[in-house]
Design a protein around this nucleic acid. Structure first.
Lengths: 152, 152
DNA sequence: TGAAAATATATGCAAGTGCATTTAAAAATC
DNA sequence: GATTTTTAAATGCACTTGCATATATTTTCA
């Protein structure tokens, strides 16, 4: 019925707008802290972290694409930038002639180690500090429902 | 204490990463629906909506800047694009020689009306449908704490 | 008042992103 | 096993964004 639908819709749009505003605002502040400390953007960290977590500290671009939310062409170019900066190497894939392997370098590992405390503190100050542990558990479990739907 | 801190940190990072992933993923899907329907990006809608809400359906760029999370130079250029497409007019501000007034046009109002059902359905399908009304109330109230801190 | 500081907007340039397409190799199909 | 289809990665081009700065105007205040 009209009234009920309207209330539900208001609720949805309100939550939606807040989600977008909050995540954008907090991301900007976290990125600003990283930049202020002289570090590259968070996207670099994400990629390097995935590399470190991987089997032999290397991944194919197509795998990075799946781990992150990046488009194929963005992965391709982000990798170029990261490699140009010396944090990873691009090697030919031994098992697939089309592919390459992106390998974490020692310099990349060092960057991860150096960025971590700054990143951790940024998230703490700009995000975690503003809510309780139980709030964080709550939003984690609610937001999980949104991300899981995206698995291709 | 070590153990306690570590658990708290895991909780923070987990919630943080989920917030970023979820909001990015859902935003992309909503934007994709708008684009598929032949509409401009959500940012245009946001600006036009602010104009419609305003006193005489017009705002100064500096006010748009405050209502959205856009940087000054981005507002300036976004307005140019919106005006070039005929959805708003740029007029000299009568009371401030430095400023301009951005006025919603009839065409802009029409765009808002046409985009709304598509936008509403996109948010419904990509976001609201995946959670309960009480989930939405919960995340709204938790995320409010993050945005409010940003008021300059 | 008149110089200095602050505010509003615009813009050149470099860097990042989206889209469409290209190239090359692997997999599937017949 | 040759041909078609699919997959991996790169790239040219147009558009968007970020940064620094320019320009004009208003505000402040000595």
């Amino acid at each position: 019925m009209q009234n009920h639908d309207t209330r539900h819709e208001d609720l949805s749009m309100d939550a939606w707008v807040r989600l977008q505003r909050a995540s954008t605002a907090v991301l900007e502040r976290v990125e600003a802290r990283l930049k202020a400390a002289g570090f590259p953007p968070l996207g670099w960290y994400d990629v390097l972290l995935e590399l470190r977590r991987a089997e032999d500290r290397s991944l194919r671009p197509v795998e990075i694409e799946r781990h992150t939310l990046l488009a194929q062409y963005n992965v391709s170019r982000l990798i170029d930038r990261i490699a140009a900066a010396g944090y990873a190497d691009k090697k030919k894939s031994p098992e697939d002639g089309r592919g390459i392997k992106v390998c974490l370098t020692r310099k990349g590992e060092t960057l991860l180690e150096e960025m971590w405390p700054v990143y951790r503190e940024a998230v703490q100050r700009e995000f975690a500090e503003h809510m309780s542990d139980s709030d964080m558990k709550t939003i984690s479990s609610i937001l999980k429902k949104l991300v899981s739907q995206s698995v291709k």
